[in-house]
Every structure is written in C-alpha cells, then in structure tokens.
C-alpha cells in the first residue's frame, strides 16, 4: 500500500477542494489515519473505492467516538522578561481541546488483499452541528453501522437511505454512548455498596435502609 503522504496527495488531486490531514497514532506501530473534511468526504471515498491501484472496496468497521471538551494543562516554554533579561521560562498553561463527535472508517481492499486505511470524519461540535455525509452510497456496509452511530452518539448522516434508531426503541430520546449520558437510576440493590453507589442507593430509602 502507498504511504499516507502519497495517499493524501492523490486524494487531494482526485477530489479538488478536499482537506486531508494525517492524524498520527499514539502508538507508532499501528497505522495513522487520514482526517477528511465533511464536505468532500463522499468524493474522496468514491475515489478510494474506484481507483484501480487502491481498490478499497470493503469498509470493514465504522465507529463513533465522543470527544468532549477537556481542559489540558501543559507546561510550555515561553519567553518572559525577568529582571531586564529575556529568558525562557516554563509556565503552566491551560487550554481547552475542541469538542466534537467523530466517525472512524476502517477500509480494506478485498481484491488486492490490502489495508487497513483509516478515515476519520469529525463534526463541528457536539451540540447542534452534528451532521456528516453518509458513506453508505459508497459502501453499503456502512448502512447499519451509521444507523448505530446515529442511535448511540447522535451524528446525523446526510444521504443515508434509512436513518433511524437501530438498537434502542424509537421513542428513546438520549444518545447513550456519549460520555455525559446519565443512566437511569434503577439498580437499587448492590451487595457491598460504597461511595457514590451507596449515596445513590440511600436516596431510594428516604426513611432509612428499609424500602
């Protein structure tokens, strides 16, 4: 398989206007991924599938990931004036990582026995701008998996032939796999409750420990 830099160049040539970034994998032994922008994702995907040298005809796995906003404290070196002399000091600085929902596609080539190529699509935020183009017209295997991401994460896939809840019942209103989902409080009994579980369980017995 070609390297990611070559792939990036070819995708940018084939689908003009697309923005492709290489996202390194924390563990360098495992493959890095390509971050593609939502507007041109379908054109890039069609190129990956139809190009005879690449022939990524098999989308194996479509995953949703929730990245809520986190505050990261880092020590960075900045230049500061101290006593008339400019020197480099280490300062602790806080920054907020962007919050988004992500869809990760693992692509393989069955005809050339090749792969994996990992594509990532990110939404703009986690609240109102949560739509991404659906890659189901390109790879039919995304159909149920994108429905599951819609059900459990809330990403709206535009162009999906049948976007409705797949695992939870249709009247369900939450997106349970999100990190900030509050589960319904219904396991009252724990054999050895402690800490938060004990506090919550006590709340069910307002008069004491008897129901």
């Amino acid at each position: 398989m070609e390297t990611l830099e070559q792939l990036k160049a070819r995708i940018e040539a084939a689908a003009p206007g697309v923005r492709v970034e290489i996202v390194p994998n924390g563990n360098p032994a495992n493959p890095a991924s390509l971050l593609v922008d939502g507007g041109h994702a379908r054109a890039a995907a069609a190129f990956l599938r139809d190009d005879p040298a690449l022939a990524f005809d098999y989308a194996s796995n479509v995953t949703g990931v929730d990245w809520p906003e986190r505050t990261v404290r880092e020590r960075i070196k900045v230049k500061r004036m101290a006593g008339g002399v400019e020197r480099e000091v280490e300062e602790v600085c806080e920054r907020k990582t962007p919050a988004y929902l992500e869809a990760v596609y693992h692509l393989y080539s069955m005809s050339r026995k090749d792969g994996p190529l990992i594509l990532r699509l990110r939404t703009e935020n986690r609240t109102d701008r949560v739509s991404l183009p659906s890659l189901t017209p390109v790879w039919r295997s995304c159909e149920f998996q994108e429905r599951e991401i819609f059900d459990l994460y809330g990403i709206v896939f535009e162009g999906h032939p049948d976007l409705r809840r797949i695992l939870m019942w249709p009247e369900f209103a939450d997106h349970p796999m999100r990190k900030d989902y509050a589960e319904p409080d219904d396991y009252e009994y724990e054999p050895t409750p402690h800490d938060a579980v004990l506090a919550r369980a006590r709340g069910h017995y307002p008069g004491g420990t008897q129901p």
Partner: peptide, 23 residues
C-alpha cells in the same frame, strides 16, 4: 417505552427494592 426508561421502571405490586442490611 418512555423517553429515558421504561414506564413504570418496575411493577410496585410485585417487586420492591430489597433492604440494605449494611448501614
């Protein structure tokens, strides 16, 4: 089917949460 859970979450005539014996 409710919006967050089944309604009712249990049948109170049939099942009550058991007593917590450790206090």
């Amino acid at each position: 089917f409710g919006k967050h859970d089944l309604e009712p979450p249990r049948n109170p005539a049939l099942w009550q949460p058991p007593a917590m014996t450790r206090s």
